[in-house]
């Protein structure tokens, strides 16, 4: 009698997932942690509402003190009466984000210690700004530091970048702060939608043309060597998740941080480049662009799946555009059909 054949697929299908050694939290604990996460964005609400009221009266004294972004009001250096004692805070509306507009030109952060002047903002935002401020050791024209002008507890802020080169919109996307937009004139409307930053906070916007997808525009493009990719702001990592290809990431803190990885092949160079919220194509397509606009911009494309639009491009490359549940672009990659990375390219 022949021995039964070992069928790996049948074994996989019948794999006992079991519960060996699992110690899940109680459901009530999970819900409590989730509730805490929902209200964490409003954790600075009380402090911010106090700050906003007091700042109107004593801006210099307040901003000179050290803020506790987790809720305690900022003690001023010149010791005015405690805000909670002499200035009753308005009752916070838990669901309404608190907006802080810093007076004058904003708060300049030139050293990590300066981040403490961002009273009322969250600790992770202060850490992010401190880290950015550390990156520029010298600037042309002596304009050093980052200037924060406006902040919302909902997870976005605006100001001027290190060295004063452009106006920046920073956002917390999937629990990581990054630079969502950078401009010398107006924000991009599609990007504001993608970043979920309301116009009431950001101000004017327009849908402009960009340079993603253009050769020789100084942005990352398929076929670049490692040196060229690094010069264009892309880091080639050494992770072996996709051998022989490795993943790439942007050197700067972009948005979205967790969905802009690309691929690099030892034979073909940069194989896949993913668009950030600050990029757009020449046809004005970027993250947040509605599907109808994408189809109108690239009628020569075709549906690769329910939520994917594939657009052949010159040089054996293609755009792969993925739509989210809101029928807007959520991921846009420009990729080369490289044999090395075929298993890892959609």
């Amino acid at each position: 009698m022949p021995e039964p054949t070992f069928d790996p697929i049948r074994e996989l299908e019948n794999l006992d997932l079991g519960g060996l050694g699992m110690t899940p939290l109680e459901p009530s604990t999970v819900r409590r942690l989730g509730d805490r996460r929902r209200t964490r964005r409003n954790a600075a609400l009380v402090a911010a509402s106090v700050v906003a009221v007091v700042a109107a009266a004593t801006p210099v004294a307040l901003l000179a003190g050290r803020g506790d972004p987790d809720g305690a009001p900022a003690p001023a250096v010149s010791a005015p009466p405690s805000p909670t004692a002499s200035t009753p805070a308005p009752s916070p509306t838990p669901t309404q984000p608190q907006v802080i507009t810093f007076p004058g030109d904003g708060v300049n952060v030139a050293t990590p210690a300066d981040a403490a002047k961002l009273t009322g903002t969250s600790s992770d935002f202060q850490a992010f700004i401190a880290a950015q401020a550390q990156k520029a050791t010298s600037c042309p024209d002596g304009a050093s530091g980052i200037t924060v002008r406006k902040y919302s507890s909902a997870g976005y802020a605006s100001g001027v970048n290190v060295c004063g080169g452009y106006v920046a919109l920073w956002t917390r996307y999937h629990d990581a702060w990054g630079e969502g937009q950078a401009t010398q004139d107006t924000w991009d409307c599609d990007a504001l939608t993608f970043l979920q930053v309301p116009r009431a906070f950001a101000g004017d916007c327009a849908d402009e043309s960009g340079s993603f997808g253009l050769h020789g525009a100084g942005e990352p493009e398929p076929g670049m060597t490692r040196t060229e990719a690094e010069a264009a702001g892309v880091q080639v990592t050494t992770d072996a998740a996709a051998p022989p290809c490795v993943s790439t990431q942007y050197a700067a803190p972009v948005v979205p941080a967790d969905d802009t990885r690309g691929l690099f092949s030892p034979h073909d160079g940069l194989v896949q480049v993913a668009m950030t919220a600050a990029m757009k194509t020449e046809e004005r397509v970027g993250l947040g662009t509605p599907r109808s606009a994408v189809l109108a911009a690239y009628p020569g494309g075709h549906a690769a799946a329910d939520n994917l639009w594939l657009v052949p491009r010159p040089g054996g490359t293609a755009y792969l555009i993925r739509f989210g549940t809101d029928d807007r672009v959520m991921r846009f990659t420009w990729q080369l059909n490289a044999a090395d990375c075929a298993d890892y390219l959609p």
Binding site: I9, L12, E13, L15, L17, A241, A242, P243, A304, A305, D306, N307, L308, L310, R322, R331, D343, Y344, P346
Partner: peptide, 29 residues
Amino acid sequence: PESQRRALVLHHLCDLSVEAVAREVGAPE
């Protein structure tokens, strides 16, 4: 490779159809 592993696990272990796997991983069928 990660993509093959993910496809096998989702299809054979999680019992998803090819269409559902394509939707979950964001790749053509």
